[in-house]
């Protein structure tokens, strides 16, 4: 693996409000990098700065694989392109025409899953079909790096599963994928590296395992008819969620919590210890930041 994109001391503000502050990143080839964060954390701004759609205040973005980075990147933005009076086959051919060695037309049509609709106008496609088409258009130049901004929005669950399988295959073929998504459970299963963007800075950069060990959090679930106040008073509890008689407790000291629950074990059933998922960890990051 080699570094193909370098971001150094990147800063961006709008109307004197800091959106990104001193962002430093090195992106390696053959990997899937997930950029996550709450709404307004600066994810889209960071992508726009990388893609030169916004001017940089200070710092720099440098692609290390080609003088013309547009020749080696494919981009799927949040908004689908939907031109009036242009057919599916025409926009695919137009996309191919910009590159020296594009993917074959039929392969792109298959990726778009629009074999029977190549003569349809783009504006006649459904939201999911437009999303698939945008994905195919991003791949037209057989790019080294793919930028995917909320790629599965508008896709049904089957289409989402198929999509991530294709992304996995692209990684195996040596591509680098930089992705943002609000479907965190999907990213959890596929991304090699997570970047948590918070208040304009990279709050975490590492694998999901590193994130778990760093936060050291586990989820303890059980059923009990005891009052929530009993568990709330335990100082090793980070957060508690009660649904009827079902409790979900997040802690970074699971052994201490189990010991503390000992006196109540007779009133506790179905005790389970689980790994926290990305959603929970991200939520905790936000809560940590709010409390800080």
């Amino acid at each position: 693996m080699k570094t193909i994109l370098e971001i150094n001391h990147l800063n961006k503000s709008f109307d004197k409000q800091n959106i990104l502050h001193d962002v430093n990143l090195k992106i390696n080839s053959h990997s899937i990098i997930a950029l996550v964060g709450a709404n307004g954390a600066g994810k889209t701004t960071l992508i726009n700065l990388i893609l030169d759609l916004l001017p940089i205040d200070s710092g720099y973005v440098k692609f290390l694989i080609d003088d013309n980075w547009k020749k080696v990147t494919g981009v799927m933005m949040q908004d689908n392109i939907s031109l009036h009076r242009i057919k599916v086959k025409e926009i695919i051919e137009l996309s191919r025409s910009y590159f020296d060695k594009p993917l074959p037309y039929t392969e792109l049509l298959t990726i778009a899953n629009l074999k029977t609709q190549e003569n349809s106008f783009m504006s006649e496609l459904s939201g999911g079909q437009k999303r698939r088409l945008s994905f195919a258009l991003a791949l037209a130049g057989d790019p080294q790096i793919l930028f995917l901004d909320e790629p599965t929005v508008g896709l049904d669950s089957n289409a989402r599963n198929d999509f991530w399988k294709e992304i996995d295959q692209l990684r195996k073929n040596g591509k680098t994928i930089f992705v943002t998504s609000h479907y965190l459970e999907e990213l959890e299963n596929i991304a090699d590296r997570f970047l948590i963007l918070q208040n304009g800075t990279i709050a975490f950069d590492g694998t999901i395992q590193e994130l778990r060990s760093r936060k050291g959090q586990v989820l303890i679930e059980f059923d009990s008819n005891l009052a929530a106040a009993i568990f709330n008073n335990l100082n090793m509890v980070i957060s508690i969620n009660q649904i009827g008689q079902h409790y979900q407790i997040i802690t970074n000291r699971p052994n201490d919590l189990i010991t503390a629950l000992n006196p109540y074990l007779s009133a506790i059933t179905n005790l389970q210890i689980k790994q926290t998922n990305l959603d929970t960890m991200l939520l905790n990051y936000q809560e940590d930041s709010t409390h800080a």
């Binding site: 933005m77 392109i81 031109l83 009036h84 910009y98």
Partner: peptide, 14 residues
Amino acid sequence: DQTSHFRLFISLKP
């Protein structure tokens, strides 16, 4: 072209 995101599409091509 702007509202249909064609200009954005073009600006990301070489």
